[in-house]
């Protein structure tokens, strides 16, 4: 029998009354995401400071950096991809709701068509 991995979750873990498990999970995921973002931002900060102390660039170079042409296009793609990733659940729900409405409309049109052509 494999050793039960008790190093991941403490027991007992009391349910918070009236909190839906979905919301609890989502909250934890949002905090984890915030943690990851903070770690990444801090790493970037380390890189910037090390480059500056090595005389490779200055913080002001970064502030003044404004990509043009192809670089600007690539930046925009990156931004849109990131927005699309985070907004995906909302978009999926919206698409689903829309599909239902369209299905109903199509049904109504079909009924109308039948009545008209009778």
């Amino acid at each position: 029998m494999a050793e039960k991995d008790i190093t991941r979750l403490a027991t007992p873990r009391r349910a918070i009354p009236d909190e839906s498990p979905e919301v609890g999970r989502l909250s934890a995921m949002v905090l984890a995401l915030l943690g990851e973002l903070t770690v990444t931002r801090e790493r970037l900060d380390s890189v910037e400071r090390l480059l500056e102390s090595a005389g490779i660039l200055r913080q002001s170079d970064i502030e003044a950096f404004d990509p043009q042409g192809a670089a600007a296009v690539e930046r925009e793609k990156l931004r849109r991809r990131q927005i699309g990733k985070v907004m995906r659940p909302y978009r999926l729900d919206l698409e689903k709701a829309l599909a239902e409405v369209q299905h109903k409309l199509a049904e109504a049109d079909a009924v109308l068509e039948e009545e008209v052509t009778k």
């Binding site: 190093t7 403490a10 909190e19 909250s27 905090l31």
Partner: peptide, 20 residues
């Protein structure tokens, strides 16, 4: 209030996860 409980506990669980 439920969110307060949840975030508070989650921060504790994240601490043990990070350290572990």
């Amino acid at each position: 209030y439920r969110s307060w409980l949840s975030f508070r506990r989650t921060s504790q669980e994240m601490m043990w996860d990070a350290v572990g």
